[in-house]
Design a protein around this nucleic acid. Structure first.
Length: 802
DNA sequence: CGTTCCCGCCACCAG
DNA sequence: CTGGTGGCGGGAACG
């Protein structure tokens, strides 16, 4: 069967070939009469006068023109021309290009029979000059970083297209990326409002916690891509990995190939824009297989949501703020074709699959050099690849333990509403070796680096890792605390070491109740046509049958598996509410009920303000499931704050620190904003927004949740103190500010787990530090647990110049 | 030859 | 049907 796409492709090709001759002929003619630019001004609004597009219209589809063929349009635009001049003047590189192009131009001109003067200038544009990045530069040059809100900052796409002399299509690409960063927002068709960088940091911060809903759009892709940077420790992300993470498509390898290619192409598009924004920079990572393109984050490092939000709130532009949030929300949640109301499920499923696939590969083909780190300590080089064989199992065991711990902790928590500074529970080694506290990932959360010693730091690292797989469930004690727990998405057979499980992360944080609200906001945002909104609403209320089925199926599977070998619902991390739901029919009905509840909850939330509700301590609440790779927003309010007061009056004997991303060189965020909160997750046993639970559950079933090291780290008594807290916090990436980040688990992933001590944020230089470690825990003697980091790849990040 | 990514066809949707 | 959007992938330019 021919897929539509394929069909189109074929069709296109056919057309191309069939019209090639004519096209060539026409081209000739066109060349002779370049001025046609002024002619075909078809209805397609302002397309740049001429250019290939027009040409093509006249002569039919042509393959990518060679340099110089673009000459047709001429570049009469003063604005553009001036801009170009300015740009090139400002950039040596560009200047060089210009020179080069001039050289080539001469030849081409003569051969192409192009027009002199302006026309010839047009010829000069080499592919590079027409790059999206440069175009973006031009675009950006037109607007101030910090626009005066008082003035009209509207952007008319047509105008821009004309002025920059490019097709609208290209402008869309840029706008999509900018919109994803909230640098612009769509007002109406053809119109955007320029926000500049004013909201950039805020948006970035939000990105750390928001969950994207739309699957493929460039916008979302852009956001996800950015998220990857924001959560990865060495802030370097290779295209390959990013693509894999973002794809989430079927694992059919073959298919993946083309998808992968396409994704890469898209990432390049995005990268070009982001590069223009100076948010990222192209680098290369070198691994065994060679040099691979990657990008390094060069944007802001300190992204404090709460701080930013506060800042924003205090800003003298309330209105904008509002819209900003809305826009952001919209971008993040609304999907143009809202057929997917609440769902990112499809993509999640895909992602899960792909992850599994990747993991499988990894498991089966361990090759990279291994660097090991023993818990908390520096690397110990004793790990051999041979161990890889056992990794899966080891991982599983580890995970199981984690799960147990989490459970335990939760229970304790529940029973003891109050957060004692005292470590809730020393996870007495439950049963067998598996139980002893795993320090496994302690290394992840090294004590605050000297530089940040004053403030506990939350290390938002992305541990994309090949997550430990959990072995058999066995009987385990209740989950313990730290809230993060992982689950594996195993093949039905379960304990198959080979199975590539997808790990699920559970965080102690609850899902943001706000998220629904946000979503709604977005959905309701009037920006899109009413029709769309309507659709959205509808969808949000009713999950598509398909989705529903999927969910149910998943749920069922999971339950079955769990019940048989795993703990209870709790183990599933179902929120109390969820669990408590009085279902008479534990099974079939239950599933549907849950979903139903979920949906209802969503609706309910519409009216509910996050704040109103008891605020669970975001960072320390019971385990919540979060889809890997997705950011889940917490209530918009300042997150960490207030938690203390949670129901229990007691709270805070333990000073709470702000967990910030320990970016070297970055200034730690002012702690003042937060109130102390005991580390151990407090979690209001009840008042759990259904949403989170269910969502978590759902996500869990989708196997998207990734395990966080945190879970592992079962804090012994010491953890009780603030420091303990710190550690814990550190484990949870992006937990800051009440937002939870679900790390994208990527098989190959790459994120360095170790907190680079004192790494300079921008210096991505030290190659040695650029390892993407895969956290693996090795079960040594029953008592000794080591955390082994297996660098999936050793990345020699080299900034590349081009 | 691998990487980068421009180009524009065409699907999709709202009006 | 028309026009705005923007997904998508061919294949040219680049290195």
């Amino acid at each position: 069967m021919l897929s539509p796409r394929h069909y189109n492709a074929v069709k296109k090709r056919w057309k191309m070939t069939s019209s090639l001759l004519d096209g060539q002929v026409l081209r000739q003619k066109f060349a002779i009469n370049p001025n046609s630019s002024s002619a075909p001004y078809d209805k397609k609004k302002v397309k740049p006068l001429t250019t290939k597009q027009d040409t093509q219209k006249v002569m039919g589809p042509l393959s990518t023109p060679t340099k110089g063929s673009e000459a047709a349009g001429g570049e009469p635009w003063t604005p553009t021309s001036n801009l170009k001049m300015l740009i090139s003047a400002a950039s040596p590189e560009i200047r060089n290009r210009e020179k080069e192009r001039n050289v080539s131009e001469e030849t081409e001109c003569s051969s192409q029979d192009t027009e002199p003067g302006e026309e010839s200038e047009r010829l000069q544009f080499s592919r590079k000059e027409k790059s999206l990045g440069l175009l973006c530069h031009k675009f950006l040059a037109r607007y101030p970083d910090d626009p005066n809100p008082a003035v009209n900052n509207d952007i008319c796409l047509d105008d821009v297209a004309v002025e920059l002399n490019v097709e609208r299509r290209r402008i869309y690409d840029i706008m999509n990326v900018l919109e994803s960063l909230n640098m612009v927002s769509r007002l109406a068709k053809n119109r955007y409002t320029w926000h500049g960088r004013v909201r950039l940091s805020q948006t970035l911060a939000l990105l750390q916690k928001e969950a994207s809903r739309k699957d493929k759009s460039l916008r979302v892709m852009s956001q996800k891509f950015v998220m990857l940077f924001l959560v990865s420790r060495p802030r370097v992300v290779s295209l390959e990995i990013a693509a894999k993470i973002l794809i989430g498509e079927d694992q059919v390898v073959d298919q993946d190939k083309s998808k992968f290619k396409t994704k890469i192409r898209r990432l390049y598009d995005i990268s070009n824009v982001l590069s223009s924004l100076k948010l990222i920079k192209k680098v290369h990572v070198t691994e065994e297989r060679g040099r691979k393109p990657a990008f390094k984050w060069t944007g802001p490092e300190n992204l404090s949501v709460s701080g930013l939000q506060m800042e924003a709130l205090s800003r003298p532009r309330p209105l904008e703020m509002r819209s900003s949030i809305d826009n952001c929300s919209k971008n993040l949640f609304s999907s143009p074709s809202t057929k997917r109301g609440f769902t990112r499920h499809p993509s999640l499923v895909k992602l899960a699959k792909s992850i599994q696939e990747d993991r499988r590969k990894i498991n089966s083909a361990p090759t990279s050099p291994v660097k090991t780190t023993i818990s908390g300590d520096a690397a110990s080089e004793g790990f051999h690849t041979s161990k890889m064989d056992h990794l899966a199992e080891i991982c599983k065991m580890q995970l199981d333990q984690q799960a147990v711990m989490v459970q335990k902790q939760n229970e304790l928590k529940d029973s003891a509403p109050l957060q004692q500074k005292i470590p809730p529970i020393p996870p007495a080694a439950p049963s067998g070796a598996e139980v002893h506290p795993r320090t496994v990932q302690l290394s992840f959360a090294p004590p605050p680096p000297p530089c940040c010693s004053f403030v506990p730091v939350l290390v938002p690292q992305v541990y994309v890792s090949h997550t430990p797989v959990r072995a058999r469930p066995a009987t385990r004690p209740p989950p313990s605390s730290t809230a993060v727990r992982s689950m594996t998405f195993e093949s039905p057979r379960g304990a198959n070491a080979k199975a590539s499980p997808v790990s699920v992360t559970m965080t102690g944080q609850r899902l943001p109740e706000a998220s629904p609200a946000l979503k709604r906001t977005c959905y309701e945002s009037v920006e899109r046509s009413p029709a769309k909104i309507k659709r959205t609403e509808t969808n949000s209320k009713s999950v598509s049958p398909k989705l529903f089925e999927i969910l149910q199926a998943r749920l069922k599977d999971r339950r079955g598996a769990l019940t048989s070998s795993r703990a209870s619902a709790r183990a599933l991390h179902l929120e109390p509410e969820f669990n408590k739901t009085p279902h008479n029919n534990p099974h079939a009905v239950e599933h549907s009920t849950e979903l139903q509840r979920f949906l209802e909850a969503e609706d309910r939330q519409e009216n509910t303000q996050n704040h109103a509700r008891a605020t669970p301590t975001p960072e320390c609440s019971g385990p919540t499931l979060i889809p890997t790779g997705y950011l889940i927003p917490f209530p918009q309010q300042p997150l960490l704050v207030k938690e203390t007061s949670t129901a229990n009056g007691e709270t805070n004997k333990t000073p709470t620190y702000i967990y910030h991303t320990p970016t070297a060189g970055s200034v730690a965020p002012p702690p003042k904003e937060f109130t102390p909160s005991p580390l151990p997750l407090h979690r209001p046993a009840h008042r759990v927004s259904p949403n989170p639970s269910i969502l978590n559950f759902t996500l869990q079933n989708l196997a998207l949740i990734h395990n966080t090291h945190t879970a592992t780290h079962t804090p012994p008594a010491e953890q009780a103190g603030p420091i303990a807290c710190t550690h814990t916090a550190a484990h949870t990436p992006l937990q800051t500010h009440g937002m939870i980040f679900v790390k994208p688990v990527s098989p190959l992933t790459l994120i360095s787990l170790q907190q680079p001590t004192l790494t300079t944020p921008k210096s991505g230089t030290a190659p040695q530090q650029c390892f993407f470690h895969t956290p693996v825990s090795t079960v040594l003697p029953p008592t000794t647990t080591k955390t082994v980091y297996i660098p999936q790849r050793r990345l020699d990040v080299s900034s590349e110049e081009h």
